[in-house]
Design a protein around this nucleic acid. Structure first.
Length: 580
RNA sequence: GCGCCCGUAGCUCAGUCGGAUAGAGCGUCGGCCUCCGGAGCCGAAGGUCAGAGGUUCGAGUCCUCUCGGGCGCGCCA
């Protein structure tokens, strides 16, 4: 329960009282009534739009209704002042004690401070990363992975039951390309070819050890053999090796999925046939011919009858192919089966985190989920834009064709997990992100990671000094919080009390970046107060001659530290006690 | 040609299920170090929220159109 909810309840109570007195109709919809901090602090601490949103239905003037509401809020224990402002806002200034009490709340709830029940225990499956097992994770994967992981943490904190999931795309043509890429390395190792790697294959060096292992085990056994003899074997070896590497990369990022689901396993278990039959039973599958794309002529277009899913019945722009002309299932068909699998395993809400280049795929997958769940399960898709890498302002040239990709592992070794994770969340997921490897590790206030970490470390430093002075820094019962009087202190307390609101808003919108921005603001409020202590010694946290005030301030700092740590934990960033 | 995303200060970006006088960082200019970590803080300047209509008590936010940028557009994933 946060302060804003408490005040909202009081507004509701005031409205119900007015209804009971017959001054308001009894059947009002109160869902649009909000209590939020006004942008301009001159309007007080909280503001409600109740009169504005209800006036029409109540057939009264907003200002009159606002006055009536205000009259019932005035004089309440925690309310210091209530004013009405045109066109009908009711603005409240709360007693300082309300904010001081938040310290006790935070200290009591600790790591749970900010939790809420927005999700009401709903089972949500968050699928993220899901990089093809054809190479290590690169920086772009890193962004989506961090986003998905932070989102999963956030939803869990907001009361959802979360499953973190990785879909291994090991069933399609790209695995054959992987097998051929490894085979080429294999021939090279045995001196059987000096041809360059054919186009479309993977030029990455990480495949060499895979080929070496095969040489060691089988020698030249596969030289000159037809593809059908070795393709499957080389593909499996490649997938196994690349997934092992990807799991290492995930571990470096601090990411742990609960479930890895293999596309190939779904196919081999006949799950796609089963799923398509299921769709067919619903009358959603037919054989038809799609029109060619308009405006953009496709060479060698041949109208081909295909097995199609009636995606247009569920909001997509076109029906979508389930089978290729060679008879194999499309990627989409496998993905439909996979999403049905997630639903059957109990997911009540599906979240997919994809790269922005998959944007064209969103509607058909949502259509499929709608069809499969008969409208009961929603699929939320979040797209992550590209990461542009820089080094000291110079763009880093990456050429996938030449095999010069910047691997996530290399970046993590350079800047560290915490910096990378935080920086990936300092932008909305759907906006492109510039990431400068040199700037990212600079220790200055330009660097948001450092700025937040520094606030946490400074608080820890105060506590070290307090402990040296022999103060009790662990027990807060009976702390005289009324000693927190300075406007800057109350400002910090109010910033701290925003945390539950921020969690709720971020979770509702699936936007973990809001956590990062909030932490920056909270750190700013703290740094500001700290520096004032430099200028006015009476505002220092540790006062040798005033133990009561010191204890109050330490309690406040302990609470702020908890909120900083809770926020960083959701982002998967470790709060540091010292910086070096 | 169609679909999705985006357009906010010189630059990079926030902006609460629509809320009041649109914010932050960088950069620029001007201040603050006996003393808890100055790796910080305070202040100033800087805006047609791409443009035009619409919805309403109220629009950066919702709708329509235009302009500009990104991504995608049968049998790749």
């Amino acid at each position: 329960m946060n302060v804003y909810h408490e005040i909202l309840e009081k507004v509701h109570a005031a409205l119900e009282e007015l209804q009971a007195r017959g001054e308001l109709p009894g059947n009002l919809d109160l869902s649009a009534v909000t209590v939020e901090p006004p942008r301009d602090p001159a309007y007080g601490h909280m503001s409600t739009n109740a009169a504005l949103v209800l006036a029409r239905a109540a057939r009264t003037k907003p200002l009159e209704l606002a006055e009536a509401i205000a009259a019932r809020l005035r004089g309440l224990p925690d309310v210091a002042a209530v004013t009405v402002a045109s066109p009908g806002f009711v603005n409240l200034t709360l007693a300082d004690d309300v904010w001081r009490r938040q310290v006790e709340v935070v200290l009591r709830e600790g790591a749970d401070y900010g939790r809420c029940d927005l999700g009401r225990g709903l089972r949500v499956n968050v699928e993220y990363c899901s990089a093809n097992p054809t190479g290590p994770l690169h920086v772009g994967h890193g962004r989506g992975t961090v986003f998905g992981d932070a989102l999963a943490n956030l939803l869990e904190f907001a009361g959802y039951r979360v499953t973190r999931e990785y879909y291994i795309n090991d069933g399609g043509g790209q695995i054959e390309a992987l097998a051929r890429s490894i085979y080429h390395r294999y021939l090279q190792l045995l001196g059987q070819t000096d041809e360059p790697l054919p186009k479309g294959l993977y030029p990455i060096e990480e495949l060499v050890p895979v080929a070496e292992a095969i040489v060691e085990r089988d020698g030249a056994k596969w030289v000159g053999k037809p593809e059908s003899d070795w393709l499957d074997l080389f593909g499996r070896a490649g997938v196994q090796a690349m997934m092992a590497r990807i799991r290492e990369d995930l571990a470096l990022l601090g990411v742990r999925h609960d479930v890895f689901t293999s596309e190939r396993a779904l196919i081999e278990a006949g799950r796609i046939d089963e799923t398509i039959r299921h769709l067919d039973g619903l009358g959603l599958v037919y054989v038809g011919t799609l029109p060619p794309p308009k405006g953009k002529p496709v060479e060698d277009w041949e109208p081909t009858p295909q097995l199609l899913f009636r995606a247009t019945l569920f909001g997509d722009d076109s029906d979508r192919p389930l089978k290729r002309s060679n008879g194999a299932w499309t990627y989409f068909a496998a993905d439909v089966a996979y999403h049905l699998d997630k639903i059957r395993r109990g997911a009540q809400l599906l979240v997919d985190v994809w790269g922005a280049d998959h944007g064209g795929y969103v509607k058909r997958m949502q259509a499929a989920v709608k069809a499969l769940s008969e409208g009961r399960v929603e699929l939320v898709v979040r797209l992550c834009q590209l990461v542009k890498l820089y080094s000291a302002g110079q763009p880093l040239r990456m050429s996938k064709r030449a095999g010069r990709t910047v691997w996530l592992r290399d970046v993590l070794e350079e800047v560290g997990r915490d910096v990378f994770r935080f920086m990936m969340l300092t932008r909305r997921n759907d906006a492109p992100l510039d990431f400068d490897l040199v700037e990212a590790v600079r220790q200055s206030k330009d660097n948001p990671v450092f700025y937040v970490q520094y606030a946490h470390a400074r608080i820890c430093s105060v506590f070290r000094h307090a402990a040296e002075a022999g103060m009790d820094t662990g027990r807060w019962a009976g702390v005289p919080l009324e000693r927190l009087r300075d406007p800057a202190e109350l400002e910090l307390l109010r910033a701290m009390a925003q945390w539950p609101r921020v969690v709720e808003g971020a979770a509702r919108q699936f936007e973990p970046h809001r956590i990062a921005f909030y932490l920056h603001d909270l750190a700013g409020a703290f740094h500001s107060l700290w520096t004032r202590g430099k200028e006015e010694s009476g505002l220092r946290f540790l006062l040798a001659e005033d133990e009561a005030t010191t204890r109050a301030r330490l309690a406040m700092l302990a609470a702020v530290r908890i909120v900083l740590a809770n926020g960083l934990r959701l982002l998967g960033v470790e709060p540091l006690e010292e910086l070096h």
